[in-house]
């Protein structure tokens, strides 16, 4: 997924969040070469040149990766523009994108062989190498354990425990929307390609993404160690808990069900963040 050599473009660089996080990512060492915006009154943001189109960015700077902060109503257009101009890795931070739009660009990305992470996600960080996201980097110290999470702030919370215990090789925030570009299974494929075999999975109530993804990863031959932590054990049925995807509908959406199934296939269940630290310290 990320090697640290990505040539990065920020879509929506002149907005409040785009601007703020561009600076943070630059400070981290991420190679941001240009940005796009429909607001052309600014020629550069934190020294990064701003263009109207992705095409100009690609032609002038050879960017291959994008991080998207474009507001939801225009996000599909921005992502499609990137895909049509050959961008192969896209992280979408934007929240509240209509799900039909997400379906469209996720399926198009599949056709053109591009990888999307998100939407509505904190992004991806390879500690010490590259940060393509909005996570507070101080909680992500370099080490051996991978984190895959549906939730944003909960990922930060747990990252601080993992960092203290063993350190992090990569943390991938998949996003809390019902449709996401990279699912649990695809995230595991990436870890397997890198030879990472210690994984913390952070899940929540809602469609059994985690169960499906972990099961498929094991079928693919993943034989590393996994511990999983789930939020929403006591969430009432039928109520949406913040995330569009977080709703218990029927048995398979409950934390209890997910834990039961995963335990059977060898996943260690952690019930608190500090338990995760205890588990991984023994690995």
């Amino acid at each position: 997924m990320l090697t640290g050599n990505e040539r990065v473009m920020v879509q929506g660089i002149t907005g409040k969040y785009g601007r703020f996080h561009t600076e943070k990512m630059l400070n981290y060492g991420t190679k941001i070469l240009c940005g796009t915006s429909k607001n052309l009154s600014e020629k550069n943001v934190h020294g990064v040149p701003v263009f109207e189109s992705v095409k100009e960015c690609v032609e002038k700077y050879g960017v291959d990766t994008s991080i998207v902060f474009v507001p939801a109503p225009y996000a599909k257009e921005a992502v499609m523009e990137s895909l049509q101009n050959g961008i192969k890795k896209i992280v979408i931070i934007t929240e509240h994108i209509p799900v039909h739009d997400t379906l469209e660009f996720v399926n198009y990305a599949k056709q053109v062989g591009a990888t999307i992470v998100g939407p509505n996600c904190p992004g991806v960080i390879v500690p010490g190498k590259i940060k393509l996201g909005i996570m507070p980097e101080k909680y992500f110290k370099q080490g051996s354990v991978a984190i895959i999470s549906r939730s944003g702030t909960l990922m930060y919370e747990i990252a601080s425990f993992v960092s203290r215990a063993k350190g992090i090789s990569v943390a991938i925030g998949l996003g809390g929307d019902p449709i996401i570009g990279t699912n649990m299974h695809e995230a595991f494929k990436f870890l397997m390609g890198r030879g990472i075999n210690e994984v913390v999975v952070i899940g929540e109530i809602g469609p059994a993404f985690e169960v499906d993804g972990i099961r498929r990863a094991i079928d693919d031959g993943f034989n590393g160690k996994i511990t999983a932590f789930f939020a929403g054990r006591y969430a009432p049925k039928g109520k949406r808990m913040g995330h569009a995807g977080a709703i218990v509908e029927g048995e398979t959406g409950t934390v209890q069900y997910k834990e039961m199934v995963l335990e059977k296939i060898g996943v260690i269940i952690s019930k608190t963040p500090s338990q995760i630290a205890e588990v991984i310290e023994k690995w």
Binding site: S151, L154, M155, E157, E204, M241
Partner: peptide, 22 residues
């Protein structure tokens, strides 16, 4: 953050009390 609020509710419940809300 939805995840962290749910995790907080879960902890309170596991310690023997009940959350009033999310």
């Amino acid at each position: 953050g939805a995840g962290i609020v749910m995790a907080t509710m879960d902890l309170i419940k596991s310690l023997g009390c009940k959350p009033a809300d999310f």
